[in-house]
Computed example of a mutant assay.
Amino acid sequence: MEVKCPYCESDQIVKNGITRHKKQNYKCKKCNRQFVINPKNQPIAESTIKLVDNLLLERISMRGIKRVAKVSLQWLQSYVNGKSVSVEPQVKVIPRKKPRLTIECDELWSFVGDKKCKVWIWLAINRNTREIVGVFVGSRDQETALGLWQSLPTVYRQWAVCYTDFWQAYSCILPKKRHKAVGKESGQTNHIERFNCTLRQRISRLVRKTLSFPKKLENHIGAIWIFIHHYNSEIHSKFCIMPS
């Protein structure tokens, strides 16, 4: 039987001992990689990876994704770790030139590790397009409110009227002339409050009563950003406009 390297398809192959599983080990003289014929652990198919990416956008636990995609929990956790680290922590928004912009800001809480470690997600949404234009994750203080403000694109910081609740951190950061603090009964923050519900429905680690609390803050933040990018991409496709 002719043996070829599965990595570079070279036929310059030599035997290289026996593995601990009593299988013949081969080495490629061209790329210097080792391999066996018909390995027990096959590479994850591209279709499976796409399925995992889609499942990560739904309210399914890691073990649930493992069962549906038929992958090992070890591989899945490693894949999620890498995906969380590589995701871009910056919103991509539709370019705006008109100064008449209105955003709604709010924050929601979740946990990392256990209920003693509460983490707050600060969000800003464009009222007209429903596009998420600002995101920051941290505690519920003035410093994190500043992080939300700095995450907004320049045009929003210069022109947008900002509707929030009465949490005092907002009044310390947002421009007084464009900051409108209102109650829920006013209906001026309905869109951002509805999006908070969407997050809790789509991301299992944000459900109040759940076993899906993340153990790593990086994965928690990564999962939020992955969904934000997916959500905004659907908004952009409706307008058929490339974000900046």
Rank of each mutant, 00 (worst) to 15 (best):
M1K: 11
V3G: 03
C5E: 11
S10T: 00
D11E: 15
Q12A: 08
Q12K: 15
V14K: 12
I18K: 11
R20S: 12
K22W: 10
K23P: 02
Y26V: 09
K29I: 05
N32Y: 07
Q34E: 15
F35S: 09
V36H: 03
I37L: 15
I37E: 13
N38L: 14
K40N: 08
A45H: 14
L51Y: 05
V52F: 07
N54W: 10
L55T: 04
L57N: 05
R59D: 07
S61G: 12
M62H: 11
G64M: 08
R67F: 08
V68Q: 08
K70Q: 14
S72E: 06
Q74D: 11
Q74P: 00
S78R: 14
Y79D: 08
V80D: 00
K83Q: 09
E88F: 09
P89C: 00
P89F: 02
V91A: 08
I94P: 00
I94M: 10
I94H: 04
R96K: 15
R100Q: 15
R100W: 12
I103Y: 00
E104G: 13
E104L: 09
D106H: 06
W109A: 10
S110I: 03
S110Y: 02
V112E: 03
G113R: 05
G113L: 01
K115D: 10
C117K: 15
K118T: 11
L123G: 09
L123V: 12
I125V: 14
N126T: 01
N126L: 06
N128I: 08
T129F: 03
T129A: 01
T129G: 01
V133Y: 00
G138R: 02
G138E: 01
R140E: 10
L146T: 09
L148R: 04
L148E: 02
W149T: 09
S151N: 03
T154R: 15
R157Q: 10
Q158S: 13
Q158E: 15
V161H: 00
Y163S: 08
F166Y: 15
W167D: 05
Q168A: 13
Q168H: 13
A169N: 08
Y170A: 07
K176A: 14
K177L: 09
K177R: 12
R178T: 04
H179R: 05
K180T: 00
A181N: 11
A181V: 06
K184V: 00
K184I: 04
E185Y: 12
G187C: 07
T189C: 02
N190R: 06
N190E: 09
E193S: 01
T198V: 14
R200I: 00
Q201K: 14
I203Q: 11
V207P: 00
T210Y: 08
F213V: 10
F213D: 01
E218C: 09
E218T: 14
N219G: 06
I221A: 02
W225C: 03
H230A: 13
E234D: 10
I235W: 04
H236L: 04
